[in-house]
Amino acid sequence: MSKLELEKITTQFSKNWLNRKGIWGIEPKSDHKNQNIVMYVNLDEIDYDEIPKQYKGVRTIIKPVDKFEAQTS
C-alpha cells in the first residue's frame, strides 16, 4: 500500500472515529516495514473493546493519552 493510500484510509477512518468521546487524535504511520493507523485514546473515556483493532486491513495502534489541550499557561 502506498503512503497516499494509507493517508486516504486514515482520513476515512477519522471521519467516523475522531468525533467519538475518548478519541483525541488519529494519524497514519508508515515505515519501511509497517503501515498502521495510530489512535491517541483516553482509555478512561472509551472502553478498549469498543476501539477498532483494524480498519480495511490496516492495523490500529492505540497510544494512551490524557487529553490534548491548548498550550496556554
Binding site: 495502534i61 497510544k63 494512551p64
Partner: peptide, 12 residues
C-alpha cells in the same frame, strides 16, 4: 492485563 509497547501500543 494490558501493556504499552513501542510497536503495538496499548493492548489488552
Amino acid at each position: 492485563v494490558y501493556k504499552i509497547g513501542a510497536t503495538t501500543g496499548y493492548t489488552e
